[in-house]
Write a protein that binds this DNA or RNA. Structure first.
Length: 484
RNA sequence: GGCCUUAUCGUCUAACGGUUAGGACACUUGCUUCUCAAGCAAGUAAUCCGGGUUCGAUUCCCGGUAAGGUCACCA
């Protein structure tokens, strides 16, 4: 063994429990997890619950549920323990006060004497003069003693330009405007994010901090605190923003960001989601696009993380999901079919649906719209053929389509054992007598399912049974007839 | 408004300063199929603009422009 001077990699995911998680947060978690796993390091889950106002009940469970779904296992954190207990910031208040005291003793922290109104006034002035608001310009000449009732501010030791290195963005810098006397401890006794995360990252030995690009502008403040504390800062890896699918704005809950667990409901595989998220802002530099978990861990590199924002493209997700579905073993599909079905379909007819789903999944990699979006409903109730013209195949006339549907119904009624093989034979026989198979098969499919795209009409007919099948075919013919 | 970041097909992206600017998704077409979202084959489509450095810029520098972020007792 050589020297082990190289510090063990420690990363963390530190969400605040303020509601559901969307792809943005989960991608940050994924990258931190990938980097830890790739380096045989430690991945910590830490809950940053220092804002009592915004806290949403159940969020912590939700966060854990998301990580579990994607199999992002944490080595330290809630439910798991570890050498740095507790992992909820709200239970670490004494620690933050201790660190605050260090700064006070150095003369680098002081209580804020101003009222909210006074501060608002300062801000208005700044805006009026089209200048950034800088609290330090109003810093009191002499510091009072902190009574723990007033907010405690950091006294920026030196106003200067800041330069630092980022693992993703390279050399970064910011002007002196980025430095200000920000709040360390709020008047309610809780620390701010700006302070708490630094203390915890130090205490927990975090070596790599991954977070969104919105933190670039506050990094100079963080660095000033590290310096004041006399601690070497960790390495920063800033992640590019994820943009909303339509607009150009950063993806946020307001503009339709989805709860990540919605995707689970819609039938996406966790591995597909992981694959998709990994590629949203990173690429391996090869043509490979489909990765399983192990391949991702192996291939992931911070220096191939993208710098520009990426738009969320669900079409790509669909494709990746399909590729993963097609790779599933028959056993895995078999075991999962019932689970993927909507709850109201799991009993009764579900047994009959299994082969349909099985084929659909293994051959087409298709489950999402089948089960998730309720497009299996046609098995349970007659589809509404609201637009009768959709029964027509390309340039087929209504008249000939009515004839074809009637002929199909008539011929099918002659089958005694209503099985998909015979159904297919009969229908194909009629179809082949026409110029285009589509002129028969399309209207039959649409009459039975109300969909352009569906499982094959033969097995659908078998499952529906003879009576229902004939009923739907004749019904569709009737609708068309009335359109003429 | 200050500070900061980013900029290659519609989208995600590749390209030691030298490539017919590559791949994937989406789209279109053909074949096959079961009419289909699978498969196979093909096609359309991009270096934001203007200067500079260089024998040569997608690539380096400067300036515009555009987009995003940030200036909270939110994280």
């Amino acid at each position: 063994m050589g020297k082990t001077n190289v510090k063990k990699v420690v990363t963390r995911f530190a969400p605040s429990p303020t509601g559901f998680m969307h792809v943005g947060g989960v991608r940050t978690a994924l990258y931190a997890w990938l980097w830890a796993r790739k380096n045989n390091g430690t991945f910590i889950l830490r809950i940053e619950d220092t804002d009592k106002e915004r806290e949403v009940e159940g969020s912590i469970d939700h966060i854990k549920e998301c990580l579990k779904w994607l199999e992002l296992d944490w080595d330290e954190g809630p439910d798991k323990g570890g050498p740095h207990l507790p992992y909820l910031q709200s239970e670490r208040l004494e620690l933050y006060k201790r660190y605050a005291q260090i700064l006070i003793n150095k003369g680098l922290a002081y209580p804020d004497p101003y009222s909210d109104e006074e501060l608002d006034g300062f801000r208005e002035q700044a805006e009026l003069h089209k200048k950034p608001f800088l609290y330090r310009e109003y810093r009191p000449a002499e510091f009072e003693k902190w009574d723990e009732k007033k907010p405690l501010r950091f006294k920026t030791p030196e106003i200067k330009e800041t330069k630092w290195n980022d693992l993703v963005y390279g050399d970064l810098s910011a002007g002196p405007e980025a430095l200000d006397d920000f709040i360390l401890i709020k008047s309610d006794g809780y620390p701010t994010y700006n302070f708490a995360h630094i203390v915890d990252d130090i205490e927990m030995g975090v070596t790599h901090v991954m977070r969104g690009q919105e933190f670039i502008s506050s990094t100079p403040k963080f660095l000033a605190v590290y310096e004041a504390l006399g601690v070497k800062p960790p390495l920063f890896a800033t992640l590019p923003p994820i943009m909303a699918p339509d607009g150009k704005k950063k993806l946020g809950k307001r503009d339709g960001a989805k709860d990540i667990l919605e995707y689970r409901k819609e039938g996406y595989l966790p591995e597909a989601m992981m694959n998709f998220l990994a590629l949203l802002g990173w690429n391996p530099g090869t043509d490979q696009e489909i990765f399983d978990k192990d391949e991702l861990v192996k291939s992931f590199e911070l220096d191939r993380v993208q710098r520009s924002g990426a738009r969320l493209d669900e079409k790509k997700l669909d494709w990746i999901n399909k590729e993963h579905l097609k790779k599933l073993s028959p056993e895995a599909i078999q075991n999962s079919i019932l689970e993927w079905l909507p709850e109201n379909m799991r009993s009764g007819i579900a047994g009959k649906l299994e082969p349909v789903l099985f084929e659909r999944i293994s051959k087409w990699g298709d489950i999402r719209q089948m089960a998730g979006a309720g497009e299996l409903d046609f098995f349970f109730k007659k589809p509404e053929l609201s637009d009768g013209s959709k029964l027509l195949f390309k340039n087929a006339s209504a008249e000939e389509t009515v004839q074809n549907l009637r002929k199909a119904a008539e011929w099918l009624s002659g089958i005694s054992d209503f099985r998909k093989e015979d159904i297919k034979n009969v229908l194909m026989e009629i179809a082949d007598s026409l110029d285009a198979r589509g002129k028969l098969l399309h209207p039959v499919r649409y009459a039975l399912t109300g969909l352009d795209k569906s499982p094959d009409p033969f097995i659908v007919a078998e499952i529906l049974g003879k009576e229902e099948t004939l009923d739907r075919l004749n019904g569709a013919a009737g609708i068309l007839k009335s359109l003429e």
